[in-house]
Design a protein around this nucleic acid. Structure first.
Lengths: 254, 254
DNA sequence: CGCAAAATTGAATAGTCTCAAATGTAGTGG
DNA sequence: CCACTACATTTGAGACTATTCAATTTTGCG
């Protein structure tokens, strides 16, 4: 029997709004599930049978075309809620980007519980509204930004989201996060980059080659460094923000 | 004093879940506002002060870059809810595409009301989840589809959404909708096209010229007809769906 | 009917993609 | 510890799609 008391995301997931008695009740219907990197939890078109809170690890939400083209339409990190409550089917696939732990509920159980706990539904509404804002912001990137702007925007977004996580989540199991924590070095903060080039391309609506070229350009211009495959150092965040908004300006002057 | 009793979207907006007494209370804090075509209700970055239900008319939600590039990140039609409850600022602008009527609430009033009417919040959660699904589906289009696929997808989406509206909404003021109702002719249904070419381009992340070229192509291939500026007839919806999924296939064979 | 705005069409360009090859990295077993 | 393999990333050259800029045609309206 797992207990919410010792849960690392206890104070950040939607469960935050529940009092101890309610939390105990929720605990009854949930169970901790471990998944391995690369494992797909649900596929586009599947029936919506379960929902979950992420305890640890990262996930991608993807939508695909018949011929294999794929777009990452969302990323989920610890304390995020995943799944599609109050709907019959999933419109996208969910795949683990790292080994991960989830607090899983059957959709029926969760919905039943949520409907008699308005505070929980309210919290879920708030997080859903934030996700919608985030998705719409990304639509501007996908519809209108150049490759350089996209890559710069991505680096900023990822650094902000991962900083937020590292600041907020208590590290119960320190060995998991320890090595990846954001480090402030003289030359700028280093961030873990939990995506391969292909995944970055799928997030940005570009090809792997274009992403690589843009990263190399930013490196040459001293905006970033790439210490190893899984990390980025942002050396000049101000200028990176410029690029994220309008790459054209600096292209000419620099 | 306006009354919900005579409201055309009474049975389709989020208010549907309220009983007569609750509805009367909601009526107290709302007021009908008329806006003209082209009028911008809120701008990106504005404080979130009001929310509303659309009674009649259409709106676009847009996000822009400094240099003027614009992306339409959402469209709202009668019975849709617009605005950003439970958040401090708007992340996007809202502009009327036609003369329109709204049932407007101050955000504070609405939030206060919603928090003591869980059924309303639940309904709002459901519509927000649907919007999120829709936004994510659009991300696949913006990130991965070709121009032909985008235009085909757009025609299908618009026909489906406008059909849904025409099927569902009671026409209190018939003169407003009458001329735009979907007509099933021998050669296929005609749909109102409440967007100019520039707006279609802003929805699809393309230029006005590319949209025009693709529409002409579809016309030449007998998939659609363009009776006048504001209407489309879909002649071969099956083949249009093919194009929406993978334009490449038919390009070679046709 | 005539005008202004919107839409279409054309030609040239630019940016990203595709295909191919080279380089780099991590993991494995000798 | 190194060689070897498998895989990811980088780099290059050329092709192609969509954009840009310009001109023309169409549409809707006074």
């Amino acid at each position: 029997m797992t207990s919410c008391e010792t849960c690392g995301v206890r104070n950040h997931a939607i469960c935050t709004v529940l009092d101890p008695a309610e939390l105990a009740a929720l605990n009854e219907i949930g169970r901790i599930v471990t998944v391995r990197k690369g494992q797909t939890l649900v596929r586009e078109g599947d029936d919506s049978l379960a929902v979950a809170n992420i305890v640890d690890g990262a996930f991608k939400l993807t939508s695909s075309l018949e011929d294999g083209r794929e777009q990452i339409i969302g990323m989920s990190f610890p304390a995020d809620f995943i799944g599609r409550p109050f709907g019959e089917t999933h419109e996208y696939s969910v795949t683990a980007l790292s080994d991960a732990r989830l607090c899983v509920f059957s959709r029926a159980d969760f919905e039943h519980f949520a409907r008699r706990h308005p505070d929980l539904e309210h919290r879920l509404l708030e997080t859903t509204l934030m996700e919608l804002d985030r998705a719409r912001r990304w639509m501007l990137l996908l519809g209108r930004k150049t490759a350089a702007e996209r890559v710069a925007s991505f680096l900023i977004e990822i650094s902000e989201r991962l900083t937020a996580i590292d600041d907020d989540i208590e590290d119960i199991d320190d060995s998991r996060h320890g090595g990846d924590a954001v480090q402030s070095i003289a030359r700028g903060p280093v961030f873990p980059l939990p995506f391969g080039r292909q995944q970055i391309a799928d997030i940005l609506g570009l090809t792997i080659e274009t992403v690589s070229r843009q990263l190399t350009l930013f490196k040459k211009r001293g905006l970033i460094e790439l210490p190893d495959r899984g990390h980025v150092r942002i050396c000049d965040i101000a200028r990176l923000r410029q690029y994220a908004q309008s790459a054209g300006k600096d292209f000419r002057t620099a």
